[in-house]
Design a protein around this nucleic acid. Structure first.
Lengths: 137, 137
DNA sequence: TTGGTATTGAAAATGGTTATCGATTCTAGT
DNA sequence: ACTAGAATCGATAACCATTTTCAATACCAA
């Protein structure tokens, strides 16, 4: 697992299980879904530990989180660590990483024009992917 | 209150109180904050009713909702009913309505290119407004 | 006015997420 | 290896925003 976390952290079996799973699942998933997947494959990891590890990975910038309108938090280990956004299927969580340099500039400019500082933004695109449209279309 | 809601709905005192308050508060507020404001001014409205009325107004497209990372839902009656986005102060909820036609087109094009249908997006800019920066800057 | 129905709201339930805390496990030092 | 000390685990309880329940009430058409 190398040094997934800085400072005083330990490489435990549980964290390795969560990291391995995240590498295998390409879609956005809830913490509870990830925990269920771990249990199903026989990995003995508590739900609490899944939440904690995801929070650690979030702080380390190793995973992304998004929250669809009316839904719970979704986690995903993205291929790129740089700033980007997502196109996410509402049904299955299938994800496409997208970049929008023009959007970044636009958001920063708008905020600056109104005297806002310490600016950040959230931008996610939600829809139904081709596979899910074919099933329940 | 006129016909704020279609179909079988009634013009109750409680709904009028919530609507009046929303017209007076220019910033994004949580349901609980709005309820507290109502109680403070002597309006006898239950928290449940505030939640329910906000949901009705949401369905009717009369109020907007946003959810800052790690926070609860924020509600606001916007001046324009057409699609737009917000620049919101993390501290006080001060809000600026903004439009980004280029962003809309970009989001729809990206989704279409990947075969997604029934597409929507969330885009909000969060920061610290000038007033709050002056207080705790 | 009156009857039927939508609405209210206090209280309880819900459900995702976080805190507790004793048991366990890793790591460094010897 | 052994041991001490700290980090981690995880079952359980707590948290808290939001929703549901359901009996009492308020609205409105006739």
């Amino acid at each position: 697992m190398s040094d997934m976390l800085a400072g005083t952290s330990r490489n435990t079996r549980q964290r390795a299980e969560v990291l391995t799973l995240l590498d295998e699942v390409p879609d956005f998933r809830t913490a509870q879904q990830l925990h269920a997947l771990l249990v199903r494959r026989g990995a003995r990891v508590g739900l609490t530990t899944v939440y904690r590890t995801l929070q650690l990975l979030l702080d380390a910038g190793e995973v992304d989180v998004t929250r669809p309108p009316g839904g719970e938090q979704l986690f995903r280990k993205c291929s790129r660590s740089q700033h980007h956004h997502h196109l996410v299927c509402r049904q299955c969580g299938a994800t496409v990483e997208v970049e929008g340099p023009a959007v970044e500039r636009w958001a920063d400019r708008v905020a600056q024009e109104h005297g806002f500082t310490d600016v950040g933004h959230t931008l996610e695109i939600f829809g139904t992917c081709q596979a899910c449209a074919g099933i329940a279309g």
